[in-house]
Each structure stands twice: as structure tokens, then as C-alpha cells.
């Protein structure tokens, strides 16, 4: 490997590479939560689902030797958590937020408990697709090692938009999310639709978790998630319940997360706590500028408990 000094150019490169590497779990969880919230329910438990997905994906990949099977199992485990959330929320007078917090703890705790034996072993990781073979620069080649899950996430974005806006099922989901009364009047099963969308959201969150353990950083440990799941839930509000904005917001968060280490690597060494906090400062600023005391969030589903 020849060394090429990119100097300060390596910062934007690292932010770009980081945006792709770090953003994938944000992308999957926020797309999943977007779907769930569009049906009128908030599942705060996705942090637990993410951690459980990371653990189960890693364990299955280790036991079977197939990383993709791990991703599938992580997704299925995620949808089971979604099903649990939905079934309990379907009962009268259940607060979806409180339940979400409970499920967050359950998911994390179960993952730690069952994952004890999988901290040590090395499981097969997901393959990456090399798009940088045209470049002689090792950093560029490495930045363009794109994981297949990111590409799947990329395809999911327009698919979800199409699903929500141009299909009968999407319309049903949005109706349930915007007005329970209207949905009932048409004869839609409100509980059924919400159960489906929470399960689908859980599936995506589980897959997002498996990305953490199976690709980047690429191994299961109890400190693996530093709140990516809960951040992604917040991203959905920030992204105005629009899958395309979810994608942008995830990229932004991924890139901001890569900024701290990248700046230190080129020798800008002071203020790293501040740079490490960049994603959160960014969220605060955008939230402050986009909030309003007079009208509710544009695009917010009408039945969502936090905006109702």
C-alpha cells in the first residue's frame, strides 16, 4: 500500500465515507420508524430492537456461517418485537411511548443476556461492493467500499415513497395514521394496519442492527450501539415523516459522526469533544429553527400521540 498524503482533503473524504458507513443503521431504523409513525403509532423500542438485531444477526452468522441469514434473522427478530409492541398497544388505554421504553430495555437486556457467548467469536461479515477500483488512492478506494445493505437502503427510499403515495395499501396506512375515524368509516382494520406497520418497522430496525455487528464496526459487543436506535427515532420527526428526508438526515448524522475522528487524524486536535457532539448540536439547531408554537409539524400523522 503506497502512502499518499491527501492533507486536508482527507476530511471531506472521511466525512463522505463516514456518511455512508455510519449512516446505514440510522437509515434502516428511521425508515422503519417512519412507516410505523405514518400509521399513527410511535415505537420508541427500536433502540432495543436494533441491539437485539445486532446480537441475533451476529450469533446466526457465526453459527451458520452465512451473514445474510444473520440479517434475515435479525429482521425477523425485529418484527417479533414489533408484533409484541403492536399487540400490547392494540389493547385499550396503552401508552405507546411508555411501552416503547419498556421494550427498549427488554430488547437491550435480552440481547446482553443471550449475547454473552458471542462477544468473543468472529462471525463472517457482510461483503462490500468495491466501486473505487478506478482510483489509485487507497483512501478513496476504501471510502468507496460500499456495503450491499446501504444500497438496499438506498433502493428502499423510493420504494417506500412509492408504496406510501401510490399504492392502495400505502393509502390505507396513511388513512389509519391520519384519522382513525375516517379509516373505521371506510372499513379498514386500524389495529391490523398498525400491527403490520409496526412489524415492518421492527424488521427494518433489526436489519439496521445487524449492519452494526456484521459490517461496521463488524463485531458484537455490549457497547455497540451508542444510541443509534433512539437517535433514528428522533430523525423521523426531524425528517418530517418523509422517507427521502430520512435518507438525507441519516447521511448528515453519519457524516457528522465521522467529523471528529477525521479532524483529529489530520492534526486538528483541539475541541474533539465538541466535534464529537456535532450530530447532537446539529439536531438541536435544526429543531429550534423548524419548531413553531402556533402550528404543528407539517407532515405529522394526525393520530400520532405526540402531535395530537
Amino acid at each position: 500500500m503506497e502512502a499518499v498524503d491527501l492533507g486536508l482533503w482527507s476530511v471531506p473524504l472521511a466525512v463522505f465515507a463516514g456518511a455512508i458507513r455510519v449512516s446505514t443503521p440510522f437509515l434502516f431504523v428511521s425508515l422503519g420508524e417512519c412507516l410505523t409513525e405514518r400509521s399513527g403509532r410511535i415505537n420508541l423500542g427500536l433502540e432495543g430492537t436494533l441491539v437485539f438485531g445486532a446480537m441475533s444477526g451476529y450469533a446466526v452468522s457465526y453459527l451458520t456461517g452465512s451473514a445474510w441469514l444473520g440479517v434475515l434473522v435479525a429482521g425477523l427478530a425485529g418484527s417479533l418485537f414489533g408484533l409484541l409492541h403492536a399487540l400490547i398497544c392494540n389493547m385499550p388505554k396503552v401508552n405507546d411511548i411508555a411501552l416503547g421504553i419498556a421494550l427498549m430495555m427488554l430488547g437491550t437486556g435480552l440481547a446482553f443476556f443471550l449475547g454473552k457467548n458471542y462477544i468473543q467469536p468472529q462471525a463472517p461479515n457482510l461483503p462490500a461492493i468495491s466501486l473505487g477500483s478506478w482510483s489509485d488512492l487507497a483512501p478513496v478506494r476504501s471510502a468507496l467500499e460500499i456495503n450491499a445493505l446501504f444500497i438496499i437502503g438506498l433502493i428502499l427510499v423510493p420504494s417506500l415513497i412509492f408504496f406510501l403515495n401510490h399504492t392502495r395499501w400505502g393509502l390505507m396506512l396513511r388513512t389509519v395514521g391520519d384519522s382513525e375515524d375516517a379509516a373505521r368509516a371506510i372499513g379498514f382494520s386500524v389495529k391490523g394496519v398498525r400491527t403490520f406497520s409496526t412489524m415492518a418497522g421492527g424488521f427494518l430496525a433489526g436489519v439496521g442492527g445487524s449492519f452494526l455487528s456484521l459490517y461496521y464496526p463488524g463485531s458484537w459487543s455490549e457497547g455497540l450501539s451508542s444510541g443509534q436506535g433512539i437517535t433514528a427515532v428522533a430523525l423521523v420527526i426531524f425528517a418530517r415523516w418523509n422517507p427521502l428526508y430520512c435518507f438525507y438526515a441519516s447521511l448528515l448524522f453519519g457524516g457528522a459522526g465521522a467529523l471528529g475522528p477525521a479532524l483529529q487524524a489530520v492534526g486538528i486536535t483541539s475541541g474533539y469533544y465538541l466535534f464529537n457532539a456535532a450530530p447532537y448540536i446539529l439536531t438541536l439547531i435544526i429543531m429550534i429553527f423548524s419548531s413553531s408554537s402556533t402550528h404543528r409539524f407539517a407532515g405529522a400523522p394526525g393520530e400520532l400521540s405526540v402531535t395530537r
Partner: peptide, 9 residues
């Protein structure tokens, strides 16, 4: 213990 940041670093 910050696995993502450690990988990024």
C-alpha cells in the same frame, strides 16, 4: 467503549 468511533478513528 465506543466501537463505531473506534472503527471510524
Amino acid at each position: 467503549s465506543e466501537p463505531v468511533k473506534e472503527a471510524e478513528a
